[in-house]
Design a protein around this nucleic acid. Structure first.
Lengths: 318, 318
DNA sequence: CGTGCGAAG
DNA sequence: CTTCACACG
């Protein structure tokens, strides 16, 4: 873990007081960055993705995972997404809301950059869809969760590696007027939890993606006005995540930064929300509890543009 | 008419030879312009819309009409369309394919510029629609042609002035696969012709708009490959215009420039057609024969951008 | 190729 | 506010 000298207190500062970012806490670089709620847009070149994070016992990280809801992979690439991917140079990128089919993936560009790809589109064109972009091939890749009623929307990919399953998910949004809240919480959440539990019985799981829920009040700017009104902060959705964690998973970001405020991974495009940091933490890396001592850091790449979500990163020492 | 010293020969030059534009023939300005098929895009400020055209008997023009298919009025305005309208300063602008409803018209901006507006939208949102923008109010304005089956698409406005009816039309496109060719030629053309004939019985008519047909081979770049294949150059469509002219109307542009080649008012956005001047003359000013001696000039504003059609102009001496 | 729609987020 | 699909041209 990155010099986590009582991070609990260190992060328990007021949101108005300038806090150090995780990057500051982990990077030896002299480049100081301002807080997540006051970052001016900077260029990719200026960003520093380096990290010297290690486990509690001092093992340096050796695997980097990125998860990002790209809100349309083609649009993301048009905005320079490939440059970000190259610079970040993660072992695996897990992306959600690809909104495209296989033919739209510039496979050769990825090959040239040293990556292979596996994408899963939903039946409805331009809707949902997930993908993984990886350096080292998994032992196996599986699409969906073997429940027919859920598997036509292209929401889950499971990549099996030696030491863990890497699962990426784009959880169904509860929709305008919460018209899909029941489906989401009573059907999807239940079956997906079951799927993860079964996986976890075989091998530790790293789950990442857009869980489409802000777990607690700290995880969004305006908990009061959104509670049980806006998809993503309804009790049933939040309880769904609570239950998943109770099955034996760790919310890596909140585990490492338990009191960190103003740390979001999503900002609606409306009303200039991102500039004002009126955001939500909807994107997560969860890991099986028995991976706890392999965790090095969990990060929000809040400066990376190109979507209404930012990438999130997990550093592990295997 | 602009010093039409045997225009017939003057224009009968090869397309590769640089020809003078109508503007050159009519404007005393020293600004020389290159041919329609080799015009580099120039700024609105650089364009010269002045003209000293007059009738055969030497009466200087005193009314300017503009017709333009704007391909979405909102998009056109976003691309600086209002600046063009101000600079052109026509007595009446007739526009087609507005693709918007009344609420989208910046009425106050037009008021400030000295114009009133009347727009007619079709029932289907974002489809078709025509409008007029005028300095002096007509005696009356009428929407449609009193034939119910045609009048739900917002295609015709008739403005009655003292000396003439001004009619603007957006003729139905025959559609991909010519699936609407029958409707267009056997129903619309027939009824619209009847409407115009009846108007013409009362008062001379100035008809302008997107007639969605290139009348003769000279009126499009590639007559061979488009003949009876592409909407706009099918025999039935061309005959429809021939019949209309036979009812007693003049194609003002072709009347004044009978042999002028490469003079188009539409270029598909595909394949860089406009830069290569691979175009069609689909937009017309027709006038009742008895207005012939009031005609001063008929012009293509081929440098004006903002749509896949350019504006066309008619100068009259009333 | 580009406009505007409508669904979706 | 932005993505995409689709219709239409």
């Amino acid at each position: 873990m990155p010099k986590r000298k009582s991070k609990t207190e260190a992060e328990a500062t007021s949101p108005s007081k300038k806090q150090k970012t995780e990057a500051d806490a982990t990077s030896p670089s002299k480049k100081q960055k301002t807080d997540a709620d006051a970052k001016p847009p900077i260029s990719l070149e200026e960003m520093d993705f380096s990290s010297s994070a290690s486990t509690k016992t001092g093992n340096a990280w050796n695997k980097k995972f990125i998860s990002m809801n790209v809100n349309g992979f083609r649009a993301f690439l048009n905005k320079g997404g490939l440059d970000y991917i190259k610079k970040e140079s993660a072992d695996v990128f897990c992306i959600q809301e690809t909104k495209c089919s296989d033919k739209d993936i510039p496979v050769d560009d990825f090959k040239k950059a040293g990556f292979s790809t596996h994408f899963l589109a939903g039946d409805k064109a331009g809707y949902s869809g997930v993908g993984i972009i990886y350096k080292d091939p998994p032992m196996s890749i599986k699409d969906g969760i073997d429940v027919e009623k859920h598997d036509d929307e292209g929401r889950v990919i499971t990549a099996e590696y030696e030491d863990y399953y890497l699962v990426t998910v784009y959880v169904p949004n509860s929709g305008r007027g919460l018209k899909r809240l029941e489906y989401r919480t009573k059907e999807w959440d239940v079956d997906f939890r079951k799927y993860l539990k079964e996986l976890d019985n075989k091998k530790p799981v790293i789950l990442c993606g857009d869980l489409n829920v802000a777990h607690n009040e700290i995880d969004l700017k305006n908990p009061k006005s959104n509670k049980n009104k806006t998809p993503g902060f309804c009790d049933a959705e939040r309880e769904g995540l609570t239950e998943l964690l109770q099955e034996g998973f760790i919310d890596t970001y909140r585990h490492i930064y338990p009191n960190k405020e103003q740390a979001y991974s999503f900002w609606t495009y409306m009303g200039n929300a991102r500039a004002k940091n009126v955001g939500w933490r909807l994107d997560y890396f969860l890991v099986s509890k028995r991976l706890e001592d392999k965790m090095c850091d969990s990060l929000m790449r809040s400066q990376v543009m190109g979507s209404d979500h930012c990438p999130i990163a997990l550093l592990m020492a295997f």
